[in-house]
Design a binder for these strands. Structure first.
Lengths: 215, 215
DNA sequence: AGGTAACCATACCGGTCGGTATACTCGCAG
DNA sequence: CTGCGAGTATACCGACCGGTATGGTTACCT
């Protein structure tokens, strides 16, 4: 696995909240780049299990041999696909947060809307987990760790941006729900609705009285 | 497709909110029953694409021939699996709502917790959509309509239980987010956190002032 | 000039995929 | 007794799966 490393471009003027996880990504050879690019698009659009390595190699204009020389296994390629996607989402998010304008926790939702723009398959991590998380020993798949850490990172980001763990967790719930309802639910306005819901939660910061009425 | 119909048991003392969609389910032959039961467990645990028809037939103690005689195709079997699961979830939910105790919108979350009990694979509909929703022409898969209608049903239920469309939509966002974070996020307390978040939204019913502070 | 890493081309491996075909046994209703 | 639907058993189809093997061609670095 001849993967060297390169530094990331925007590690300087980014909010401290997401600084620690904008880690550098491995550098690839030319064919390796094309392979990962082809795999990323195919994996996201059609699903990880639905795409075979032959199709990836053909789409990238290279061969299976090169694929296995560069990445070692399909599982590793899947994990790398998710890792790079997380990296790019965080870059996009950091840029939007740096622009300011409104409460930063709500900016995450507008950033999500522009990010999702043309993409109609929702959260790549939730999709991948649905395809890989089943069966015996599936939790050992290298992609599962990437998925878990991505969700934990978003949770920590919301905790940081809201300045409160309870509130951050609630906004995170809304964030994930918006992503699901936009795709599986088929609601194109789900993300905007999520932003509104998050705003409602932010407006009533204090812990609300439990048990409104008996019924 | 020799599927006749039978009436559902609890169409009498159930809340009017979910009455219209507790529709009867097709009756099956003995082997068809075993096939659907085996398929349901396998599909949920391992994923729809990961399970082949051979395994389903073997697990049910029957043959592929019988499977195709009863259901016609794997796609139809998948759709039926989701349909029956939705049906059972609604029965479970109706029973918990009939017991009363607390705001009904929050009872949905406690019902979800007992429902999920031993099941650690999250929302079958979100998982199935992740596996089937990709690629060209995937929206025509018979299961996609079942998935869409399930999400629409839950949304309508929350609208009804909260008595307000905006609030219902927000609680629904939290509900879906809790389901995702419990599984893909790996957080065992996500559903309880979702209930708390929903309680917070219910406590601040009135639309909150937008834009708290410039940054 | 020699070495080496990246790349391309092709064929193959055992296994599984969804789906079909043939032929047989059983229980039951007429 | 007969007819028929349900179920069983087994073999087969073409296609694809992830992964491996062999061999040859560039291009760059020393």
């Amino acid at each position: 696995m001849p993967l060297t490393t390169v530094p990331t471009a925007l590690d300087d003027a980014t909010p401290p909240a997401l600084r620690p996880v904008l880690a550098p990504l491995p550098a690839l050879t030319a064919a390796g780049d094309r392979l990962l690019a082809a795999a990323s698009e195919l994996f996201y659009d059609r699903g990880v299990r639905a795409v075979g390595v032959d199709l990836i190699a053909d789409t990238a204009g290279t061969t299976k041999k090169t694929l296995y020389d560069r990445f070692g296994s399909k599982d590793a390629l899947v994990a790398l696909y998710l890792l790079r996607r997380a990296h790019r989402w965080r870059e996009h998010l950091a840029a939007r947060l740096a622009e300011g304008g409104g409460p930063p926790a709500l900016t995450v939702f507008t950033a999500l809307e522009t990010w999702m723009g043309t993409q109609h398959r929702g959260c790549a991590f939730v999709n991948a987990y649905a395809e890989l998380g089943g069966g015996p020993g599936a939790q050992e798949h290298p992609a599962v760790a990437v998925i878990r850490s991505e969700k934990a990172w978003m949770r920590a980001l919301f905790d940081d941006l809201t300045g409160e763990a309870v509130l951050g967790g609630r906004v995170h719930l809304v964030y994930e729900g918006a992503l699901v309802l936009r795709t599986a639910g088929g609601d194109p306005d789900a993300i905007a609705a999520g932003r509104d819901a998050a705003a409602a939660l932010l407006a009533g910061r204090s812990d609300p009285p439990r048990e409104l009425s008996p019924t």
